[in-house]
């Protein structure tokens, strides 16, 4: 993987969900080789922030700068097809992202013994591992991870931390929304609580209420 020339940066970012502002005044920079952990209670806007950075929705205010085509997004859903095998699922995403090689991902997330199994016959934790292996086949430097450790056991969490560390060492970077301790002590933590959107009366941004009536 070629290390990205520039960092992923958010400047005075505000994001909204369903027309209501949830986060504002967010400024951070994610440099290659670093990990940033997003912390915040349920509903604090972690998923919305990640979807905005991934480009799935426009920001309410502020700007996001990142080199083009460098972001890989992993949502709650793994994007697996139940009737395809593990190998077919991975190979599909590898072809879509133009990398083609799934061996490193298979070994990285310990999926070697499951290659010919259909995704519908995997356990929840195995599906999650396959979903995370998808990140490895994208070959993209910036990983946006939304609760990546859901339904993983302790051994798999350690395996995942090792994969993330390998990714960072290779010049990648990761933005991780999580509630548990991933075993990545070197990662910085960004607490979202102080960035909660204020009411418009207190100087907060107006949401895009009119969007629903357009």
């Amino acid at each position: 993987m070629t290390p990205p020339a520039a960092a992923l940066a958010a400047t005075d970012l505000a994001v909204s969900r369903g027309g209501l502002p949830v986060l504002e005044r967010l400024t951070f920079t994610l440099h290659p080789g670093r990990a940033l952990i997003l912390r915040g209670p349920n509903g604090s806007g972690k998923t919305t922030l990640l979807r905005t950075i991934a480009g799935l929705q426009p920001p309410l205010a502020g700007s996001i700068t990142a080199p083009p085509e460098t972001i890989a997004y992993a949502s709650h859903a793994d994007g697996l097809k139940a009737t395809l095998t593990v190998a077919e699922n991975l190979a599909f995403w590898a072809q879509i992202f133009g990398t083609g090689d799934i061996d490193a991902a298979v070994d990285g997330m310990n999926l070697r013994g499951l290659l010919d199994r259909q995704a519908q016959n995997l356990s929840a934790g195995q599906k999650r591992r396959l979903g995370l292996a998808r990140l490895l086949v994208t070959g993209r430097p910036f990983w946006l991870l939304d609760e990546p450790t859901i339904s993983l056991d302790v051994a798999s969490v350690a395996l995942f931390a090792q994969v993330v560390r390998g990714h960072l060492a290779a010049g990648g970077a990761a933005l991780i929304a999580t509630h548990i301790d991933l075993g990545l002590p070197e990662a910085e933590v960004l607490d979202l609580a102080p960035h909660r959107a204020r009411a418009p009366a207190d100087g907060g941004l107006m949401g895009a209420f009119d969007e629903a009536f357009l």
Partner: peptide, 14 residues
């Protein structure tokens, strides 16, 4: 859309 592939396809290079 249900299994999340559509979000991932939207962020893919295609």
């Amino acid at each position: 859309h249900e299994d999340g592939s559509l979000d991932l396809l939207a962020t893919a290079p295609i």
